[in-house]
Design a protein around this nucleic acid. Structure first.
Length: 291
DNA sequence: GAGCCGTGGGA
DNA sequence: TTCCCAAGGCT
């Protein structure tokens, strides 16, 4: 539907946020780092960390040469620190097999660790101007409302990709900008709670508006618990090691989670398995590669 | 494919 | 306070 893109492109040109990874001259590497950091993580928290990373590791080979401990400390409290490990692993492959240049085609990107269906297409579109549908939670919500007249997107479905592809204009550069505009609309206007329809550039084309903004009648998404979960305990343990000058003894780690010693031990073991922590010969624990 | 994997801000 | 959720990926 070119009609939607015809509205979105001028709106995006006028209202797009000034994000550092959107500036002219940002490399494919810069875009890839931003996309990994932005997975399940708000823009405001990514912004300063992204700047630090690109200044410190301007090429994939620079990150590839860093120690895991450095990488995890630089990741800070962005969350989901396994993303940092996978990003470094991707950098190793890019440096060794792709001449230190982030690939520009979806299939090659998909083969890299930590890069899935969303990120591969986001990099192809935003870094290289490719015409490929970029489907994230924002785009799925926009399509659910504007195209299908539903309040929420529900579970990901096989038709998400063709549904989104149908919205892209033929011109490659315009299509890439449309993908960015769809995401921006979902992030800033067509938001999950309290959509600002009065500010929407496609409100008169929106199927959800035409249907009278019906409430969501699909399955209710089950919320993930947090308090007392292994995720919380892992986060506490890693936070201790990030904040320590060097290796930490058992006592320091025990203090991170006193509620349930068995759970603490299990979580520490899982961190070792994941490669987020290593144990030294003397029994102490540290971020991997810490000297 | 359902569940797991961090963190913090806003309603 | 509690709950929701924010540019997902992996198993």
């Amino acid at each position: 539907m070119p009609a939607l893109a015809d509205r979105l492109l001028p709106w995006f040109a006028a209202h797009a946020r000034d994000l550092p990874w959107r500036e002219d001259g940002v490399s494919g590497w810069g875009v890839l780092v931003s996309e990994i950091m932005l997975q399940q993580t708000p823009v405001v928290r990514v912004d300063p960390i992204w700047r630090e990373w690109l200044a410190r590791w301007p090429r994939p080979s620079d990150l590839a040469a860093a120690s895991t401990a450095e990488v995890l400390r630089a990741w800070g409290k962005l969350g989901y620190p396994r993303r940092a490990l996978r990003l470094q692993a991707a950098a190793v492959v890019i440096a060794a097999e792709h001449d230190d240049v982030v690939p520009d085609d979806v299939d090659t990107l998909l083969a890299l660790p930590g890069i899935g269906a969303y990120t591969a297409r986001a990099v192809a579109a935003f870094a290289y101007g490719r015409r490929c549908p970029v489907v994230d939670t924002n785009v799925r919500r926009v399509v659910a409302r504007a195209v299908h007249g539903r309040a929420e997107a529900g579970d990901a479905a096989a038709r998400d990709l063709p549904d989104t592809e149908a919205l892209l204009p033929d011109d490659e550069a315009d299509a890439a900008r449309t993908s960015a505009a769809l995401m921006e609309l979902g992030a800033c206007v067509c938001v999950a709670r309290g959509p600002r329809c009065a500010d929407c550039p496609v409100v008169d084309l929106c199927a959800w508006q035409h249907a009278g903004r019906p409430a969501w009648d699909g399955p209710v998404k089950k919320g993930q618990r947090w308090a007392g979960t292994d995720r919380q305990v892992r986060g506490r343990l890693l936070d201790v090691l990030r904040g320590a000058d060097g290796p930490a003894g058992a006592a320091a780690l025990e203090s991170a989670w006193l509620t349930d010693p068995a759970q603490r031990a299990r979580c520490l073991d899982s961190l070792l398995v994941d490669g987020l922590v290593e144990q030294l010969a003397d029994g102490r624990f540290a971020l991997p590669g810490e000297t």
